[in-house]
């Protein structure tokens, strides 16, 4: 697929992957506004560097990687600087948008917000591994491709991340009955094409 310098071809590529890329961005950042900005940053960056990938089979991985990196960059920046307060009207705007994004009928419950808050305590590498493997159900092999590390590293980051989350999440479970998995309602199965199998973590 030739997308270099061709916004039409690139636009189509984005449309094909946008739901999965959004799923990655929103899970990494939690906030719809930030996820939107990260996704946009990532797509501009990908468009600029469209000549840096080769072959259609790698495009999915490549786009995922750019989105993950854009989201992680944003996370690191967010933790590095305090929020600047803007004009009141604008703050209200962004709050309203943020809230409606998180608590709309299909959005997160308080428990889910607690899970996201707990995730914030992980180092970004562990969080990224858990977003891909546990939240989105990608195989360890796919996650390793996206993150550009070995499968062992993905497993290790995921394992450490789960260990750190455990004490923060155990109080949220009433009787171990949490977690009916309904996450695939819009984007289809969260599996990278042509790379099923591998050492899945679960």
């Amino acid at each position: 697929m030739h997308v270099e310098g061709d916004p039409e071809a690139f636009g189509k590529l984005f449309e094909r992957h946008r739901d999965r890329l959004w799923a990655v961005a929103i899970r990494t950042l939690g906030d719809p506004e930030e996820a939107a900005d990260a996704l946009q940053d990532a797509m501009i960056s990908a468009f600029r560097r469209a000549d840096s990938f080769r072959g259609d089979s790698a495009v999915t991985t490549w786009l995922h990687r750019i989105v993950v990196n854009a989201a992680l960059d944003r996370m690191r920046r967010r933790s590095a600087r305090p929020t600047v307060s803007g004009d009141d009207e604008e703050m209200l705007d962004s709050l309203a948008t943020g809230r409606s994004g998180v608590s709309d009928p299909s959005g997160a419950t308080d428990t889910q917000l607690d899970v996201m808050a707990a995730l914030r305590h992980l180092v970004p590498d562990q969080q990224a591994a858990l977003v891909l493997v546990d939240m989105l159900g990608y195989s360890v092999a796919d996650a390793a491709e996206v993150l550009g590390v070995s499968e062992g590293t993905v497993k290790s980051r995921a394992a450490r991340g789960r260990a750190r989350l455990l004490p923060r999440l155990s109080h949220l479970r009433p009787a171990g009955t949490t977690g009916q998995d309904q996450r695939n309602r819009s984007a289809g199965p969260h599996v990278l094409p042509a790379q099923e199998g591998g050492d899945d973590a679960r």
Binding site: G5, P7, F10, G11, F14, E15, R18, D19, W22, A23, I26, R27, P32, A36, L39, Q40, M43, I44, F47, R48, G101, V102, D104, S106, G107, A108, Q112, V115, M116, L119, L130, D134, M135, G137, R162, L165, L166, L169, L172, R173, G176, T178, G179, Q180, D181, Q182, R183, S186, A201, R202
Partner: peptide, 30 residues
Amino acid sequence: QVSVQLASVQFSQMPADLSARIQVAIASEA
């Protein structure tokens, strides 16, 4: 259960206008 909890978190779908916004940004970039 931690993994199950993580998998069960639901998020809002992609905002309806984000796709158009990104397409505009790509075209502007071009």
